[in-house]
Design a protein around this nucleic acid. Structure first.
Length: 797
DNA sequence: ATCCTGATTTTTTTT
DNA sequence: AAATCAGGAT
């Protein structure tokens, strides 16, 4: 390739960048810290830097490892790098921390006593296993919840504490109990050939520490490592990076063993946006970067290209209340913009009405499109009222997070079937599906099979295949299990024979009688489940298609590497041996892995006519012209559980993240009364609101309104917005008034009755609950909702 | 073995 | 308000 073209290509990469951005993009070898304030173009810098490394011959595609936290972020980076370099990015390791680790572990699974078809347990799976271990140890559920124990174990793994190391430093009976559960939990995981999320990081570190040659292979393969959102890395990730690139350590915590390596590490992050402390993220990783690497180049990006100055001034003011981190002062040349809108409402319903009303106005007046608006909140529970109100207003929306598709029981069942086929040791999946649909195999029988597998040290599949050898199993159970396993064996043959994932899934649902059982139910509920399963088959089919496509690409473009860059590492292994894909890991395993590592944020759809609702955490890295932050109340945000142990600073950073998502308009709303755990509770505005200078704000307070409901006879209740004296009284009075205020005869509904709802359309009553509550599944979207029969606009069809 | 019901707990945030 | 769970009835 001619010299001029190269120079021109490099030049093009720097176009439109400001000075510090250029510095970051063109930095050569050695450690680099990019302190990227919100909206300062960090993804641009990251992607151009990757392209720069390739164009300047500093790295070949296969020598770049760029890690992010979500698949979405990885996909976005991939897309943008592709556009910059004009061809595919195959061969580049551009993925999440967890995917990269899963990939490494699959290639080297045997070194850790695993097979490459190990299963990845999600939090629910792992929790069930923790619970079982707690039962074994005889821990009282009333005193310690599995969730609490699980989170302790998770924290230990994030700190790279093994079960025995944890036991050695445990103090007091509580920690000793955790240590014992942890030990058993690890044993069970290994027996099941399974890993939890934390294991992916933890065991990759173990792999590299126990097998220096494996470490060396990867360390020399990746000549340049880039990390996004560095402020959210935990200790395991920190250590992993050390092992890959060599060098730095934090003497305060680490062992002072220096690891040799090229030290080509570029990290991007913002300590002010560190919001994952609860899952082990350690801000000191970014704060101490310069200490770990005294020769690091540090670049600060402070020009914000996203928000108006008013929004940035508010953000700067809020974050200044934290104990100083790394000083940054965001600025923008987009002009002052409008003031921030702070709104006080009597309760959460009024809050939702205000938000939806304002959205309606913005849409009507063409001030924004749906895709340009997002509503953020601290906890998922806050979305419910907002959703109801949006549905009534007939504004389409998407919710990120909350109840996820892949957590639906039927979807989890289907995946459990596939997991068991892929990994015959997967006891958790076995347990889940052995009696679903009902086959007459009860808890007692399952327990016997599991116990026998545990004591004989055989895979669960092997044990279940010869049920007559399980001690104490009844004749009926033996027959049922044998029948079940013969079906499973058949399916496994199918998988071995190279069936596509979609085919295998369809056959599984068919032959196990799962579909049949659902069809036999003949309820709208079951109908919805069947549709979900159809969707899952579609997902599998898409996956198969992608796989085929990639296989073709590989045939057509053998070694589509750009002109050889100088590579001193002649002995470096070709990437193919470091990654198990594609032939080695069956398509099924890869499919299961991808599903297991999906994040909520990955489900977000852009460029569609949808308002987006999500938690503040899920909003990190995103931007919207119009942002609403709901529930700005003391106890909600900052959350009451975060108020102790220094969590307030992290909450403030979360607020900072929220504010800086907004480009043009920012609404901060709070309710003076809100139902929490079903109890009406009086609340005060968030203390964070007071940290925003008055001159940046316009404030309006909506007074309490009566409960008219448009029926005419409603009794207006005057409740003064006073928080001082008592709490809850207003709420109680309000609900009394509500009960009496409506003179309509109570309509009664019967199970299975067809009904029609003013906003949700047609549906069927699937349950009757006390206090006049009915459950209706709606045909429109398959959703199931609880309604108060007396007040909801429903009638018999 | 399965179903039902009342009690208990849940709400932080998530790869 | 909603979901999960344990214990007891069938």
């Amino acid at each position: 390739m001619p010299q001029e073209t190269d120079a021109a290509r490099l030049q093009a990469l720097l176009e439109g960048l400001n000075e510090p951005q250029r510095e970051a993009v063109t930095h050569g070898e050695g450690p680099l810290l990019i302190l990227a304030g919100a909206g300062s173009g960090k993804t641009t810098v990251l992607t151009r830097r990757v392209a720069f490394l390739l164009f300047s011959g500093q790295a070949r595609p296969s020598e770049v490892l760029a890690v992010t936290f979500t698949n979405k972020a990885a996909a976005e980076m991939r897309g943008r790098v592709e556009r910059l370099i004009g061809h595919g990015t195959r061969g580049m390791w551009l993925m999440t921390f967890h995917s990269a680790c899963a990939r490494i572990l699959r290639a080297k699974a045997d070194l850790l006593g695993y097979t490459r078809s190990f299963t990845i347990y999600d939090q629910a799976d792992s929790r069930r296993m923790v619970k079982r271990c707690m039962d074994e140890v005889g821990v009282d559920h009333k005193r310690f919840t599995p969730a609490a124990v699980q989170s302790r174990i998770s924290a230990a793994k994030n700190l790279l504490l093994s079960a025995s190391a944890y036991r050695d430093q445990a103090s007091g009976p509580f920690e000793e109990m955790i240590a014992e559960v942890y030990r058993r939990y690890e044993r069970e995981l290994e027996a099941a050939n399974a890993m939890d999320f934390d294991d992916l990081l933890y065991r990759t570190v173990s792999l590299f520490e126990l097998h220096p040659d494996a470490r060396r292979d990867y360390a020399s393969a990746f000549r340049h490592v880039l990390v996004d959102e560095y402020q959210d890395t935990n200790h395991a990730q920190y250590r992993l990076l050390q092992l890959l690139i060599g060098g730095g350590q934090q003497p305060a915590r680490g062992e002072a063993v220096s690891i040799p390596g090229h030290r080509n590490l570029a990290v991007v992050g913002d300590d002010s946006q560190s919001i994952y402390g609860f899952r082990g993220a350690d801000v000191s990783n970014i704060l101490d970067f310069a200490r770990d690497f005294p020769d690091a180049r540090v670049v600060k990006l402070e020009q914000n290209y996203r928000s108006t100055q008013n929004i940035l001034s508010a953000a700067n003011a809020v974050i200044s209340h934290n104990r100083a981190g790394i000083a940054k002062q965001l600025w923008s040349d987009l002009g002052e913009g409008t003031t921030l809108h702070v709104r006080s409402l009597p309760d959460e319903h009024a809050e939702a009405r205000l938000i939806v009303g304002e959205i309606q106005r913005l849409l009507d007046e063409d001030l924004a499109t749906r895709a340009e608006i997002a509503v953020l909140y601290r906890t998922n529970a806050l979305s419910r009222v907002l959703e109801d109100t949006l549905v009534r207003a007939e504004i389409s929306y998407q919710v990120i997070g909350g109840t996820k598709f892949y957590e639906r029981a039927e979807v989890k069942d289907a995946i459990a079937y596939l997991s068991l086929i892929a990994n015959p040791q997967d006891a958790v999946s076995f347990q889940r599906i052995v009696n679903s649909p009902r086959r007459g195999i009860g808890q007692a029988s399952v327990a016997k099979v599991l116990a026998h597998a545990g004591s004989s040290d055989l895979p669960i599949w092997k044990v279940a295949s010869v049920p007559q050898e399980v001690p104490g199993l009844g004749a009926a159970a033996i027959k049922a299990i044998a029948r079940f396993m013969s079906t499973m064996e058949e399916l496994r043959e199918l998988a071995r024979g190279g069936a596509s994932v979609a085919e295998l899934l369809e056959q599984t649902l068919q032959k196990t009688g799962y579909l049949e059982a659902l069809e036999a139910e003949r309820t709208i509920e079951a109908q919805g489940r069947l549709e979900n399963l159809e969707q899952l088959v579609d997902v599998a089919a898409e996956f198969d298609e992608r796989e085929d496509q990639e296989a073709e690409d590989r045939v057509e473009l053998p070694a589509a590497e750009p002109p050889a860059a100088p590579s001193p590492d002649q002995d470096a292994l070709p990437l193919a041996e470091l990654a198990p894909e594609p032939a080695a890991a069956s398509g099924l395993g890869l499919f299961l892995q991808q599903i297991a590592l999906l994040a909520d944020a990955d489900a977000r759809r852009d460029e569609e006519g949808l308002i987006t609702l999500m938690t503040l955490h899920n909003a990190k890295g995103l931007e919207y012209p119009v942002i609403f932050i709901a529930g700005c109340e003391e106890g909600v945000f900052p959350h009451s559980r975060a108020l102790d142990e220094g969590g307030i600073e992290e909450e403030r950073r979360l607020f900072y993240v929220g504010i800086t998502r907004a480009m043009r308009e920012l609404y901060l709303t709070y309710a003076r009364r809100r139902r929490i755990f079903g109890e009406p509770t009086a609340s005060l505005p968030s203390s964070f609101l007071q940290e925003i200078p008055d001159e940046l704000i316009d404030f309006e307070q909506e007074q309490e309104r009566g409960f008219g409901f448009g029926f005419g006879g409603g009794t207006a209740v005057e409740i003064r917005p006073s928080f001082g004296g008592f709490s809850g009284g207003g709420g109680v009075r309000a609900s009394d008034a509500r009960r009496r205020g409506n003179g309509c005869p109570a309509p009664s509904f019967r199970l299975g009755e067809d009904v029609v709802h003013a906003a949700f359309g047609e549906g069927v009553v699937t349950a009757i609950e006390p206090d006049g509550v009915i459950v209706v599944r709606f045909a429109g979207d398959g959703s199931e909702r609880k309604l108060i029969a007396e007040y909801a606009p429903v009638s018999r069809r």
